[in-house]
Every structure is written in C-alpha cells, then in structure tokens.
Design a protein around this nucleic acid. Sequence first.
DNA 1: AAAATTGTGCTCAATACGCGAACGATTATT
DNA 2: AATAATCGTTCGCGTATTGAGCACAATTTT
Lengths: 109, 109
Amino acid sequence: MLKNLEELRKSRDWSLQDIADKLGIAKSTYAGYESGYRRPPLHALIQIANLFDVSIDYLLAREHTIDITDRLLQGKQKISIDHMVLDQEECDEFVAFIRAKRDIKKKLR
Amino acid sequence: MLKNLEELRKSRDWSLQDIADKLGIAKSTYAGYESGYRRPPLHALIQIANLFDVSIDYLLAREHTIDITDRLLQGKQKISIDHMVLDQEECDEFVAFIRAKRDIKKKLR
DNA sequence: AAAATTGTGCTCAATACGCGAACGATTATT
DNA sequence: AATAATCGTTCGCGTATTGAGCACAATTTT
C-alpha cells in the first residue's frame, strides 16, 4: 500500500532514527509503516507527505484521471507542465481545440 | 480536515444511509467522518475517494502542485476533458500546445 | 576490541474506532 | 390530523489498532 516509503527515505539518506526524530515519533513506529506491519493513521500520513513534499496520492501509489475541465476550478489542486503551474487560460484554448476536434470526428461518422 | 465531505455527498443527492450502504459501514460511522468527530482510517478514505472518483489530496483539501509533464509524455498519467480520456497523441499535443503558447507569450514581451 | 548505529520484532498499555441505539426534527403517507 | 418513515446527531461500550519501549543481531565507527 505504501510501497515507496523505504526508497523515499533512503533517497534522502535518512536513517529510521532520523526520520522518526523529524516526525516526533519512535523509530519502531516508522519502521512499522515501511514494512507494512502497520498503517499510518491519516495525520501521520499527512506529516510524512509534507516531509517528503509529495502528494498523498503519490505515497499511496494511486492512479487517477485528472479532468482538466473540472480540475482547475477546484483551487488547491494544481498541476504543472515543465514546473510551471498551469492556469485556466492556458487550458481553455486547448480544451476548445479538443472539443472542436471531437465534434468534427463525430460529424464525419 | 475533511471539510468537503458533506458537500460532496449532497452533490450526489445521497443520504448518510445511502453512502453508508455503498461503503458497507454504519451511518453513524460515516457521520463521524463528516462532522470531524472521527477520522477515517486509510482504507476507508481510499474507498471514499474511489466512490466519489476524486483524489485523496482533494478530499483532504491539501495544497499541492504535481508536475505531470514526464508522466504525461510517458503515458503514465491520464487526463480527460469533459470526462473523456485523451489518447496518447492528444496528450503529446497538449504538452506541445502549452509549450508553444508560453513561447509565444515570452517572445511578445 | 569496544562503542555506537542501524534495522527488526515483540509485548503491553493507551488510544481510536465501529456499531447499535436513542433522540428530535423534517418529510411523506394514510 | 395522525401516523409512519426518513433524516442527521450524539452517546456509550466492546473491540481493534496503534505507539512506544525494550531487546536483539548485524553492521559501522572510533
């Protein structure tokens, strides 16, 4: 369920003790998360995500479709291209383009 | 922490009993999530996210930016417009489109 | 060789959880 | 209008799950 935790920690060159100190928990507790022996409760998971600066969905290896037409209206969830955040205006034209394209395809049938 | 849960449920016109049945839990349990009286454990949160078809980060109203460029070009990240998934060619076009648009904007300055 | 660090596994106390039940407030049915 | 049904809220209690400490072997450092 949390398959990347150990790799993520080692990529930072942190020991279990290091990360436990950062989170303010016992190293055995964090070891339990990594091994899958225990599942972190929500508040712990959030702190872990903050520490590594990744999304919760990434930690959970969750895949989901991002709908551009819904998404940008939702405020706090942002996506970026080439490390530059996508704004509404940038998307609108492309959305119009795809819609037109689909429309044509539909009429050709 | 999960401030959107009630709104999300009502947007679907579901009662507490409805959603409890869908999730296979007691309505008082789900009511606890909505009110903030209890926090859903991870496995419950995942099921809720699946039910509403949203990301965990959205449920948690977490501010986070994810860069999808690489994943998009590699076909690992799906995006949709009007709830219709884009194919690989369209995904490539999307990235190219955004890049081109930014390029133009840059030159105009 | 000794001492410190690392990761693992275990037990136990404390916490957090899920459920059922009861409640008042609306809404629907007869 | 009276009754029944549905809705959301809250509580207590039994249970499940967690967190921390401790001990251990393996590795590294001094």
